[in-house]
Design a protein around this nucleic acid. Structure first.
Length: 134
DNA sequence: TAGGCCATCTGGTCCT
DNA sequence: AGGACCAGATGGCCTA
């Protein structure tokens, strides 16, 4: 395939409980309006990739000069989406590991990400105090 | 029903 | 050139 071995990984297999929604109007939909599984992207023919139109963004943040938008095909966009999902998945794994290290009541519902971070800060501060006072 | 949380998409920027 | 990272936008789900 034109997309290489990266797409041999079926990411959705790694996240069986992840609900896949199609909130954006730009997402692919099938004839029933259902979300098209992006993991089948490796089956797409690269020759069908459509380049986005060129256009200019207002101003480059670094140079201040008008800058051309990066051209990205729909195939590349889908690949970037998959990479982003994978990145967020590893971020959530890290949150889960942190959650397990932070004291909480077992009967409580799982800490949210922001709660986990805040509790971790408090916990680390507490443990630091304990160490310094011994 | 409003608000919090989350998953996902997207485009911009940085880095290799 | 392309991947990683990031922040904003959007929509779904859940709970008070």
């Amino acid at each position: 395939t034109a997309t290489g071995s990266y797409f041999d990984v079926d990411f959705m297999e790694m996240m069986p409980n992840t609900s896949v929604t199609a909130p954006m109007e730009t997402q692919s939909t099938d004839c029933n309006g259902l979300y098209q599984d992006l993991t089948s992207i490796h089956e797409l023919d690269i020759s069908t990739a459509r380049l986005n139109d060129f256009c200019t963004s207002p101003v480059s943040a670094s140079s201040g000069k008008p800058k051309r938008k990066r051209v990205i095909s729909s195939i590349q966009r889908q690949a970037a989406n998959i990479r982003e999902r994978k990145r967020m998945f590893s971020l959530n794994e890290a949150f889960d590991r942190l959650r397990r290290k932070v004291p909480s009541f077992a009967y409580e519902k799982s800490l949210s990400r922001i709660e986990t971070l805040r509790l971790a800060i408090v916990y680390i501060s507490f443990m630091t105090d304990v160490l310094e006072n011994n």
